[in-house]
Amino acid sequence: MIATLFKKEFTLELRRKSVVSGLVLYLFSTAFICYLTFNLRQNLVTPLVWSALFWITILFTAVNSVAKSFIGEKKGRDIYYYSIANPASIILSKILYNFLLCTLLSASGYLLFFLFLGDPIYDKLVFAVLILLTSMGFATSLTLLSSIAAKANNSNILMAVLSFPIVISILLMAIKVTKNCIDGLGWDASWDEMLTLLSINCLVAAVSYLLFPYIWRS
């Protein structure tokens, strides 16, 4: 069931290519604006500024991309899914799909930053694992919030308000590990933060798995 729903998300996305290309364009314009602004004077982008810009860009892209997973759905389609699938497989397939989407967007975000603003990252492998973990964190925490926001009025503002305080603990860890990666401290320095990040992800995923049926019922 999860596989079917996952495939459905994928086919729908491929059918509406405008959404994904919109997100990529969003990412591109943000990176480009950063480049244009910081190009005014040489050597303004220190590694820490790079890290701040990178995570701000990724955060906003992630919020926008995950937000559409429920907010974009049509009213009648909800009822149709409700009648054929159980809520657990719906939330799991959405989380899985958003995880994939976030990873892709973060990876392409890194590429764009690499192109425009240079590449201060020393430990590439640690950073790659970090991107995987944060994408997982974004996907798990934002998917449930998107389903809450979809039920309320002015959902786009609500999505931002609800998600930022919750995503902050993930971001704090990410910023710290990014600094370690920039300094080239290797695995040992980032191990604690990675484990914390993984446990936050597990916690949030478990809670969303348990809570989603209650939102779905209404």
């Binding site: 449930l144 305080p165 949030v204 809670v207 939102i215 209404s218």
Partner: peptide, 12 residues
């Protein structure tokens, strides 16, 4: 919805 968010936020 607010009950769900309450539990979720507390866990986070």
């Amino acid at each position: 919805l607010s009950a769900v968010y309450n539990i979720f936020a507390f866990a986070a």
